[in-house]
Amino acid sequence: MTTHYEPPLANRGVVIAENKVEDVENVLTAMVDYLRVSFKTHDVDSILENVVHLKRDFMQEKETGFYGYVGTVQLDYIKVFYSNPGDSRGVLVEMSGKGCRQFESFLRARNKTWYDFFQDCIAHNGSFTRFDLALDDTKTYFSVPFLLGKIKRAELITRFKRMDYNGSFDIGEEKEGGTTLYFGSKKSDAYLCFYEKNYEQARKYERDVEEFDEWNRYEIRLKDDRAQVAIEILMEEQDLRYVALSIVNNYIRFVDRRDDVSKEYYETSAFWQDFIGDASKLRLYQKPEEDFYEKSRNWLKNSCAPTMKMILESDQVLGNQDLSNMIVEAELSDKQEKMLAVFLADIGDMVC
């Protein structure tokens, strides 16, 4: 029996898009996968209340930060950095891919979408310095190793000056381990990454890749001006299709080689035309994630649970209560108190 792991919603043919449930069988799905947006203000409470819409009581506070910021207010992978008064950095909101999925649970609780969040950012003069999109392809219009073969045969027309690739091979099982293609430089303002997501998930869950359906992931990473322009176009068009696939097609195009004409006259490959042509089926996809502090629970399960079980079994045999006494006498840190509040709260109680 085949077991499906990620993405559970997409493989069932259902996504949450624009607050509607839609059938997306054999359709590309697009997700917000990473973002950073800065504000020229030091009023953290205003950003939390009017942009992020999360109550500060449920967030942890640290007197450390990244990118030159001096402090952080965060709820797991959703982070708000702040700077000292007079520092031009102001406030920065950052969400990793996991943070975007968590934030979608709060958007859903407020009956809002990413468009509403982007509009709030714009209304408060936010500047988008990083904006990543991810395209999940479970129809698999092409295989990633096939693309690599086309590239090696000079059947790629691109604006990028460089591309890299890597792959892996399981010597013991004599099986391929998946291929990844990188277009452009990680230091540039635009960067594309194509890879076989089914192989990545198989490694993550230590499963055979055959247990997963075909699944490619195409990531678009934009910085600074390109990130800002992409958001502006997205807000104008209200169509992620235009942003995601237009960016991909602008930077790369696969063609069929011909010996009788020069490269600029090569015709676009049929599979690439199909891929770009079906872009109209794309939707802004939300996969809300309500599982917070999963890393901490996994650490507890893997590192502490065996020891706790040992003490519990000892108590049962000797008639002691060492484990229960340890738990009762333990004092929670401020961080753990915040985590507990999040665990026990309803999602709706955490938004403002």
Score class of each variant (00 low, 15 high):
F212Y: 15
D239N: 07
S296Y: 07
R253S: 10
F212I: 04
T307N: 15
F194E: 10
S262A: 03
S168A: 15
G277R: 02
N249W: 02
V261K: 06
C304P: 09
W272T: 01
R283Q: 06
K309D: 14
K281R: 07
D170E: 15
D291L: 05
K301D: 15
D189C: 05
R258Q: 04
K263P: 11
D256Y: 00
D274P: 01
D291Q: 01
A230M: 13
E267W: 02
D274E: 11
V209H: 08
S246N: 09
S188T: 02
M310G: 09
L192W: 07
D239G: 02
K223D: 11
W215M: 08
T307M: 15
E211D: 04
R283D: 07
Y218E: 09
A227N: 07
L234T: 00
D291G: 02
S188G: 02
F254E: 03
N250R: 15
N198V: 00
L240R: 00
M308I: 14
E237M: 04
Y195L: 10
F275T: 08
D260K: 01
Q286P: 04
Y182R: 11
N250W: 08
D256C: 01
P306L: 12
R207V: 02
E200L: 04
E264T: 01
A227R: 09
F183T: 03
M235S: 00
G177P: 12
Y199Q: 08
Y182Q: 08
S269T: 00
R283V: 08
Y293V: 03
Q201H: 06
